[in-house]
């Protein structure tokens, strides 16, 4: 077996575990030979169904990772994937040395982890290496041409997506000095971004916050979506979830290299397809700066907002 294939299989396990929140058996092992990952569950359920995740976990990753890593010369004594509903818990386990890789939205990573605690990692990406920007979309027939026109409109946004929340809030605070929650009585929380696009299309909402990938998928499914929905504003972000590696993890370079060549193997590609990403991309810690800046601006504006 050549180097690429062996490493891609290992990366398969890594990616998978990056996306999962399944708690494996309690593993107490030397972190020189383990791969433990922590996942923020609210940010991954939209990307893959639980059944797909289960299949890929049980079949592709768990066994394959240990075997292929060993073939690659990496002795992996244990693998672990931990699911967190709160970033606080993830942070606690990280502090305990339980996690080697963390997977969560960039805003939350920025809030809960200092830059010197983590090292460069990887993220999913779209076709053509496009960033999966956060889009502010509106119905074309509602005469909405600026943020100022959003007042009183029906808003649809992703449930639990804090980046959408602070992004929209920041825009409202900039324009109205008031939170959108106060100016817009109708705010719908949807579990899937595609549903937000559909709600706009069928005139169930006037304004929506969706990631570029979801919007693109919906326009491909129905080109008429572009006629009825237009992009009013966007916030640049690489992906909905970022993966960073514990700075003290000794296999960081190996794992990152395997992850980045993961798309080259057929099996790795198959796994990536489940998570709707063609390949993984190198992710610098500094890329958190943009969301960190937004978060700080939001906090600042909020402090001066009209109560």
């Amino acid at each position: 077996m050549n180097f690429t294939k062996k490493h891609s299989l290992l990366a398969c396990g890594i990616l998978f575990m990056c996306q999962l929140g399944f708690a494996q058996a309690d593993v107490v092992a030397d972190n020189n030979s383990r791969v433990n990952m922590g996942f923020y569950i609210k940010s991954i359920t939209e990307q893959a169904s639980i059944s797909d995740i289960e299949i890929s976990l049980n079949f592709w990753v768990k066994d394959a990772l240990a075997v292929e890593a060993e073939k690659a010369g990496l002795y992996i004594s244990s693998t672990g994937a931990f699911l967190y509903e709160s970033m606080r818990e993830m942070r606690d386990d990280y502090d305990k040395g339980k996690l080697d890789i963390i997977v969560a939205p960039p805003l939350l990573i920025s809030r809960y982890f200092k830059r010197d605690e983590i090292t460069d990692g990887f993220s999913g990406m779209l076709e053509g290496r496009q960033p999966d920007n956060l889009l502010l979309v509106v119905r074309s027939d509602k005469n909405i041409n600026a943020i100022e026109d959003l007042r009183g409109k029906r808003i649809a946004m992703l449930e639990g997506d804090e980046l959408s929340d602070i992004y929209l809030d920041t825009l409202f605070l900039r324009s109205f000095n008031k939170s959108y929650k106060k100016l817009n009585p109708s705010i719908q929380q949807q579990a899937k971004a595609t549903r937000i696009v559909l709600d706009l299309y069928f005139d169930k909402a006037d304004v929506g916050l969706v990631y570029f990938n979801s919007y693109q998928v919906m326009t491909e499914l129905n080109p008429d979506v572009k006629n009825k929905i237009k992009i009013l504003d966007s916030f640049e972000v690489r992906s909905k979830n970022y993966s960073y590696i514990n700075k003290s993890y000794p296999l960081a370079d190996e794992i990152r290299r395997i992850a980045l060549s993961f798309y080259k193997s057929p099996r790795g590609k198959q796994i990536l397809d489940i998570y709707k990403t063609p390949e993984l991309d190198f992710l610098k810690v500094e890329e958190l700066d943009l969301v960190d800046s937004l978060d700080r601006e939001h906090a600042r504006l909020l402090m001066h907002a009209i109560k």
């Binding site: 899937k192 549903r195 709600d199 169930k204």
Partner: peptide, 11 residues
């Protein structure tokens, strides 16, 4: 008349 759901479900 939640056509969004209908489309989503049928897709």
């Amino acid at each position: 008349k939640d056509y969004g759901f209908i489309v989503e479900h049928n897709v």
